[in-house]
Design a protein around this nucleic acid. Structure first.
Ligand SMILES: NC(=O)c1ccc[n+]([C@@H]2O[C@H](COP(=O)([O-])OP(=O)(O)OC[C@H]3O[C@@H](n4cnc5c(N)ncnc54)[C@H](O)[C@@H]3O)[C@@H](O)[C@H]2O)c1
Ligand SMILES: NC(=O)c1ccc[n+]([C@@H]2O[C@H](COP(=O)([O-])OP(=O)(O)OC[C@H]3O[C@@H](n4cnc5c(N)ncnc54)[C@H](O)[C@@H]3O)[C@@H](O)[C@H]2O)c1
Lengths: 218, 218
DNA sequence: GTAAGTTTGTTAAAAAGTTAACAACGCAAA
DNA sequence: TTTGCGTTGTTAACTTTTTAACAAACTTAC
């Protein structure tokens, strides 16, 4: 299909925004709305209406003049683009506070993404089931990842353990890693990596807050 | 001072990377290194050496030829740029799993940023102290934020409570908000806002994993 | 002491991402 | 009708961000 080819070349930022649009659209749908204007989506996402229209143009979706976009259809189309046909399965490495928060938050939210396993070294956690997700010992990682066909790993172990944990995930054949520890990790180029550290976000925020403060003092 | 003026116009991405460089540099310092090359920093951060050099050029830091950058000095300079002179104080709204993870993780990591208060509605949590951070009832938000001179709020309440919580923070005079719930919020333009949703990151990851999969199948 | 090899600093070019501008359209009110 | 307004789709301009290119400088090896 031609469309699949096109979606390959969607800008990275557009992919992110599509996910965000869908999240917002799902809420609107729940609230009983059937249509939405570009400027409404824009306001929710803190961007410009032009950008919304441009993104939707890129995925080939057309709205109705003066009526806006059909919410249900748009959710459907975004799903066709960013979701995969089969379920994508995810494992969480390290079921501490953050790992728990993620398990709590995540499952059930998306139909094509599911956390199916947790791994830990703490004997008290191994064998327990949290929110429907069983906790396995790290030694079984290869076995479980093969058996369940898990392709994404989330790292929430103590920072020092991040590199060795990443190594295990890679060895086990994982294709994408989301690293929530502050220790950067290295991956081969066929593994997708996202790293997020709260402190970077906070420091950025603090920088701009300070800047605004300094300006007001003048 | 002239330099302060210049730092105002640093690219947003550079600010983010400076925070990341510092994080990496602190680790290197601990490991006993005294100097580092641009390509080493680049490798840790998964970017190019040119970009590192460019960022450092923008902040006016010069390395030594064939010896690289002095780690201690660079950490110091990055601090002068992105940290504020006085401590920036932070409050966490909602001390559930995620709020706890943040308290656990954060305090002590940075000298100029500190979480000094938590707020919750659960009577069992109110009055407790977690990791040195007291939990107050939300009703006292105005009082505590004024008294402690808190300027940043992190939102980790249940998603539905996000907008009302944001409203309270804004009313209390907060200047920056970091929203970790999946419900987008609205803020006046003198308040800095960052929103982060794990699902967006995961969906993006899943998209590129799928893409790579599809390519391999051809 | 000279040549070869590295690494920095900076300017210039390229790429990615955002915003502006506006024609086309359709609804609503006059 | 017809006029005016609000909205989409799209091209073009602009801005931001990244990458390339390369001279200058220092070190080491010969
Ligand atoms: N990025 C962020 O925003 C953010 C926020 C909070 C915490 N963190 C980071 O996330 C990580 C986890 O934080 P937390 O508060 O949940 O810590 P925690 O100590 O509560 O949890 C860590 C868990 O990992 C397990 N573990 C230890 N070694 C392991 C290994 N080798 N393999 C598998 N499991 C192992 C422990 O038994 C524990 O259950 C830390 O690195 C922390 O720095 C990041
Ligand atoms: N963005 C992410 O990556 C991510 C990950 C996990 C969870 N979350 C989100 O973070 C939020 C918190 O998650 P959690 O797992 O910690 O939930 P939780 O239920 O464990 O914690 C929520 C806490 O907020 C308190 N609370 C409820 N209403 C409040 C109010 N009006 N004011 C102050 N406190 C209030 C509750 O008493 C509870 O202690 C949720 O919205 C969840 O969707 C986000």
């Amino acid at each position: 299909m031609d469309a699949i080819h096109a979606f390959e070349h969607l800008p990275h930022k557009t992919i992110e925004r599509l996910s965000q649009y869908r999240r917002a659209l799902l809420i609107c749908l729940e609230e009983g709305k059937s249509h939405i204007f570009s400027h409404e989506i824009a306001r929710i996402q803190h961007i410009t209406p032009v950008q919304v229209r441009r993104d939707l143009m890129l995925i080939g979706y057309s709205g109705t003049l003066r009526k806006g976009y059909n919410i249900e259809q748009l959710i459907e189309l975004i799903g066709e683009i960013i979701d995969s046909e089969e379920m994508i399965k995810v494992a969480v490495m390290g079921l501490g506070d953050l790992g728990h928060a993620i398990l709590n938050y995540f499952n059930g939210k998306r139909s094509k993404l599911s956390i199916v396993a947790g791994f830990d070294v703490n004997p008290k956690k191994i064998g327990t089931v949290f929110n429907g997700v069983p906790c396995y010992p790290v030694e079984q990682i290869q076995e479980i990842i093969n058996r369940e066909n898990i392709s994404i790993g989330i790292i929430t172990v103590p920072a020092k353990q991040a590199p060795v944990t990443a190594g295990r995930l890679i060895k086990a054949g994982i294709k994408g890693i989301l690293n929530y520890t502050p220790t950067p990790i290295q991956v081969p180029e066929d593994v997708y990596l996202e790293e997020y550290d709260m402190i970077t976000t906070l420091e950025k925020l603090a920088f701009y807050v300070k800047l605004a403060n300094d300006k007001n003092k003048l």
